[in-house]
């Protein structure tokens, strides 16, 4: 009796596992499959059907009729422009806040963490007027700087909690050998924190790549748009008429994220869990 109960339970369990898997993954599989459908397939076949042949015309359309490559170039520039300064200054601040004792340290930490509760949208009006005055609208600086600022709180929080485990003895030894604090930081702290730097980098990279509202508000022309904006524009103009090209465009923008994610998922998931469980 008991063994039978267990098998019924495990059957239900696996049905659930598969069902949830379908829910979580099917929409993306559907998009990729549909990107190979020709116009005829969309007209004649039901939406869930497989394409009748392996048609790559949609991809040709995307790469010849849209500015996909420009969008990718801009996204890469923004990504690098955000990540490198963000990681550097957030690690410096997180490390100092966690390892150096000084007055007002607790206050400063709370000051930085306040940013976790503040939504980015509320800063857009003042930033827009200032950038407008300074002539920064439609420049990389306008896309990059607010993103760094609004990602700082989370990054500092993570580096702060990771730095707690940093072995101080190594620094002591280096200081006795005559290493300056900044020298120590770049020669000891950065290499030894590489694990946490990569964890934070992978998480922030995904946030940055997917960012929408900031880039949307501060860009005007096609040649400055990032992938998310480009996708929205492209689909906005093609979406009603050319579904195949729409699906191909979505696939093209999603594939790099998938590849990146499947290589770094272990770190990203571990970082997500440690950031939120331990606080």
């Amino acid at each position: 009796m008991k063994t039978k109960k267990v098998t019924v339970g495990s059957v239900i369990k696996w049905i659930l596992v598969v069902l949830l898997l379908v829910i979580q993954v099917y929409p993306f599989v559907y998009v990729m499959i549909s990107s190979f459908k020709s116009l005829d397939d969309f007209r004649k076949l039901p939406a869930y059907a497989l394409p009748s042949s392996f048609y790559i015309g949609n991809y040709v359309t995307v790469f010849t009729k849209s500015h996909m490559l420009t969008y990718f170039k801009n996204s890469v520039i923004v990504l690098i422009g955000v990540l490198i300064p963000l990681l550097l200054i957030a690690l410096m601040a997180g490390f100092a806040l966690s390892k150096i004792k000084f007055r007002g340290k607790k206050f400063l930490l709370n000051y930085f963490l306040l940013g976790l509760m503040l939504p980015m949208q509320v800063a857009l009006i003042p930033l827009f007027t200032i950038f407008n005055k300074l002539g920064l609208i439609n420049t990389y600086a306008a896309i990059i700087l607010p993103q760094i600022a609004f990602s700082l709180s989370y990054s500092i929080q993570l580096f702060y909690s990771f730095s707690k485990f940093f072995p101080e003895e190594i620094l002591e030894a280096a200081i006795i050998d005559g290493c300056s604090p900044m020298g120590c930081f770049f020669r000891m702290v950065v290499p030894l924190s590489l694990n946490s730097v990569i964890t934070v980098a992978t998480m922030q990279a995904v946030f940055c790549w997917n960012e929408y509202i900031n880039a949307y508000t501060f860009t005007r022309s096609t040649d400055m748009k990032t992938v998310t904006l480009g996708l929205n524009d492209y689909v906005g103009s093609m979406g009603l008429t050319d579904w195949g090209a729409t699906f191909a465009a979505i696939t093209v923008t999603v594939i790099p994220v998938f590849i990146f994610y499947f290589f770094s998922s272990k770190r990203m998931l571990a970082g997500m869990a440690s950031g939120a469980v331990k606080g």
């Binding site: 993954v25 997917n210 929408y212 998310t228 996708l231 994220v257």
Partner: peptide
């Protein structure tokens, strides 16, 4: 997977 895909 859905977490890493852009809202757009």
């Amino acid at each position: 997977v859905p977490v890493v895909i852009s809202s757009v």
